[in-house]
Computed example of a mutant assay.
Amino acid sequence: MMTASGTRIVRARDIMNTTIHYIDGMATVSEAAQMMRKEKTTSLIVQKRGPDDAWGLIVSQDIIRGVLIEGKKADIVNVYEIMAKPLITTPAEMDIRYVARLMNRVGVRRMPVEESGKLVGMITQADLILKSSLFGDVFL
């Protein structure tokens, strides 16, 4: 699909990472860090506790701020203590130009992609540039 100006519309689903790693909020930060190393990722989605709950997110910066800098022990701090919650998600069909504006407006570097109430992927600021054909096919 094209915009009125003739630019191809690139949607969140076109460039998102489809692998999502989940962790329980009761897990320790040590367990979260081990999972991040094993999966080679810097972010984990914190599972909902029930149907009326919201997803959370723990990223490497949370561990640095909430444990390392604070001098706390990662094996006694729980994920729920340092995670971000609730998450702002983006619809899978959203044009990435609007995704970029939303991410910039709320000050996040990564955002889960949602479709029909389920998380289907994760999009990062780097994905907006590196995986988008809006800037030519150099990075594809």
Rank of each mutant, 00 (worst) to 15 (best):
V79M: 06
K131P: 06
T89Y: 01
P91W: 04
S116D: 13
P91D: 14
E114N: 05
L134G: 06
I76S: 12
G25N: 02
I88C: 08
L128E: 08
P91I: 02
P112K: 05
L119C: 07
D95Q: 08
V29T: 05
M2Y: 14
V120W: 06
I82T: 03
V46Y: 02
F135A: 10
V59L: 01
R49Q: 11
K72R: 15
I96T: 04
I96A: 04
R97S: 07
A100C: 13
G50K: 12
E115I: 00
L130N: 14
R109C: 06
T124R: 09
N78A: 09
S60C: 00
K131V: 08
L119K: 05
S116A: 11
V59T: 15
S60K: 03
I58Q: 02
R49P: 00
T89R: 01
V79Y: 06
L87D: 02
I76Q: 13
S116L: 04
I9H: 03
I82V: 12
K40D: 13
A74V: 02
G117V: 09
R97L: 11
D75P: 00
H21D: 12
T42Y: 01
T7M: 11
R13D: 00
I45P: 00
V113H: 05
A4L: 06
K72Q: 09
Y98V: 03
S133N: 13
S116P: 01
V59P: 00
E31S: 11
R97H: 08
I64P: 01
F139I: 10
E70L: 10
D137H: 14
D24T: 05
R49V: 09
R101Q: 11
D75N: 14
M26R: 12
I96V: 15
E70Q: 15
A54S: 13
G6N: 10
I82W: 00
L44F: 11
S133F: 06
I129T: 11
G117C: 12
D137S: 15
P51A: 04
S30A: 14
S133E: 15
M111I: 09
F135M: 10
A74G: 13
A27S: 14
E81Y: 01
A126K: 13
I69M: 10
Y98A: 12
D127G: 12
W55R: 05
K38V: 05
V120A: 09
T18P: 00
T42R: 13
K72E: 10
R97P: 08
A100I: 10
A12E: 10
I15C: 05
Q47F: 00
I96Y: 02
T19F: 03
V113D: 09
E93F: 13
M122C: 08
I129P: 01
M103G: 04
G66Y: 01
T124G: 09
L87Q: 05
G71Q: 08
V138G: 07
Y98K: 13
A74P: 03
T90H: 01
L68R: 07
F139A: 15
V29R: 03
K48R: 15
S5K: 14
R110D: 02
R13C: 07
F139T: 14
K118T: 08
V10G: 05
T19D: 10
V106N: 03
E31K: 11
A54G: 04
V79N: 03
E81C: 01
I64S: 12
T124L: 07
I64W: 07
P86A: 10
T19H: 11
Q125R: 15
I20N: 05
T28W: 06
